[in-house]
Design a protein around this nucleic acid. Structure first.
Lengths: 229, 229
DNA sequence: ATTTTTTTTTAAGAAATTTTTAAGGTATTT
DNA sequence: AAATACCTTAAAAATTTCTTAAAAAAAAAT
């Protein structure tokens, strides 16, 4: 497991590193947010521990930047004890927030809890794959390509995200609300329903699957959509 | 979203409930772990907030019991400030651990962070039990499919919900009022009785079980319905 | 910086499906 | 026999989805 540690106080970063390495994690240690963003893509991080108050880019800004592309757990570790900071930190995308001075054992327990949630409680295996291949569908998340009957079909970002979610859950119904939250990552309201419907229609069109009885993206009345295995 | 609150100190449970309801969550409030375990299957909980020190079954034991079957996030709220308890709580399957006196806003931020992780960042709860298979009935909540004598029978959302509730409680009578509240999630009045009856009739029809002596969905006079094991 | 193109969202009417109501009937209990 | 609870049927009402087109927003190109 690869853990990212970002803290401009070297002693703290070193201390955290010792405990993490002791628990057999691979540690990537950084002293500035800028350097992190430069390397993030190639590191394949599973969890990040960020300091809030850093020179240059602060922890909150870094967290926001990370969340634009990644969903691995983020834990803030900070000397700031203001309640409003905790609330802000958790609101902008962090999963946990610990104040200094912290007990290393507690930090480790929280790291393990977050990794368990991220890796184990997730649907096993299925989620890690970046290619899903079944029936006459081949969809690749890494390359953002979709092949249907061996010919490439161009999808927009939203269309791809919807189809990917349905394929991840192939065989199972995805509730409209869950689908919305997966794709848009924000709260769902009734009116959003129509937005999804239009995208579904576009997808069906691109799969030549419009008409009364779609063969691929199937409507489950009052619940959501599913794609049969 | 359905949130479970378990605390034998009524005032705390009530306080938490107020904040949760204010944020538009549905709250199921319990004062003992035993009662929770009895109802858990039919509640469809998305997140739990548990007190650690309770009379009878303590929070840790309840957490372990829940984790045998469910993966929704669990947050401990407790007066125990011993570090070792935090570590233990997080180790046995909890996702977060807050000590009293806690700031309600912080609790709410942590609830939201956990739900975001569970519902938006992760694919949600693939592991939670979703298939019931007995006699010649096979009902799958994830795929929203119902097989009767090995052939697929299409059900509407309400029909499915009713049958699922009866199957969850197979062997036992489900009171009309309880059935209504499970399916419609609102208060029950006499006139709703007829609505249920019509749906039951449709179900019986689809199971070729109309007539004087139904073999599957059995009427228990003056009480409700049951489906025999 | 502006224009063009593409994508996403909104809106509104139509179509399809599901749910509820209502009324008359049947079975069971007291 | 009366009262109560349940069943059946069909039509009305409500809900949900589909379709289409245009507006708005975002991205790409000039």
């Amino acid at each position: 497991m690869n853990i990212l540690v970002v803290d401009d106080e070297k002693e703290i970063a070193d201390l955290i590193e010792i405990y993490l390495k002791n628990a057999n994690y691979t540690v990537y240690k950084y002293y500035s947010g800028k350097d992190v963003l430069r390397d993030l893509e190639r590191l394949e991080i599973d969890l990040a521990i960020l300091d809030v108050m850093m020179q240059g880019m602060d922890g909150f800004s870094l967290c926001k930047k990370i969340r634009e592309k990644y969903t691995f757990p983020i834990i803030f570790v900070t000397a700031k004890v203001e309640d409003i900071d905790k609330v802000n930190g958790l609101t902008i995308g962090a999963d946990d927030y610990i104040t200094k001075p912290f007990k290393p054992l507690e930090l480790m327990a929280r790291v393990k809890a977050q990794l368990r949630r991220y890796k184990n409680y997730n649907q096993n295996g299925m989620n890690d794959a970046s290619v899903i291949d079944f029936r006459n569908i081949l969809i690749n998340q890494k390359t953002h390509e979709f092949y249907f009957n061996d010919s490439k079909v161009e999808l927009t970002k939203t269309e791809f995200s919807i189809l990917w979610c349905l394929c991840l859950n192939r065989g199972n119904v995805v509730k409209t609300e869950d689908l919305f939250r997966y794709v848009w990552k924000e709260d769902y309201y009734e009116k959003d329903n129509n937005t999804i419907m239009v995208h579904i229609r576009h997808l069906r069109e691109k799969m030549h699957d419009n008409g009364k009885h779609p063969k691929y993206i199937i409507t489950v009345w009052g619940v959501g959509y599913k794609i049969e295995k």
